[in-house]
């Protein structure tokens, strides 16, 4: 297999669980002229079939378990999951709510945890870069 191109073209699917939408705004901020992640070939695809990285903000509740699992299942291999923000990592301030299961790792395997409430764009980009490294490892393992 020639040089891996994943690090030059990481395509992202952003899913928002139970959250205050603070992290979502920061994720979108990454696409703005200030951060311009497209410089690194990042595309926000909005479609699991095209995505390499599942970027989840917010926590898991009873109703979105099925959705998250389906989206994860529909992403073609290799794929990684990046949990962005306190809620996605552990359930955050919603953790004890009656309908909350907890962090994303309760339903799908998470490769990178990005802390913060809300997570800052710099750390989100850092999380994606770490995700690319994980993606690379998975590709090598399967090859």
């Amino acid at each position: 297999m020639p040089m891996s191109l994943f690090k030059r073209s990481p395509w992202i699917l952003h899913y928002d669980g139970s959250s205050c939408n603070g992290c979502d705004i920061e994720v979108l901020a990454c696409l703005t002229p200030l951060y311009d992640v497209e410089r690194f070939g990042v595309v926000n695809t909005g479609n699991p079939k095209h995505a390499d990285i599942l970027l989840v903000t917010g926590s898991v509740n009873e109703r979105n378990i099925e959705i998250i699992q389906n989206l994860y299942r529909q992403m073609p291999d290799p794929k990684v999951v990046v949990a962005v923000g306190a809620c996605a990592c552990s359930g955050g301030i919603f953790a004890r709510a009656y309908n909350i299961q907890g962090g994303i790792d309760q339903v799908v395997p998470v490769d990178v945890y990005v802390p913060g409430c809300a997570a800052r764009p710099e750390s989100i980009i850092d999380g994606v870069v770490s995700g690319i490294a994980a993606l690379e490892q998975k590709r090598k393992r399967s090859a």
């Binding site: 899913y15 699991p48 079939k49 099925e66 959705i67 998250i68 389906n70 989206l71 529909q74």
Partner: peptide
């Protein structure tokens, strides 16, 4: 069954 329906089963 693997077609995309916004994550619905």
């Amino acid at each position: 069954a693997d077609f995309y329906t916004s994550g619905r089963t």
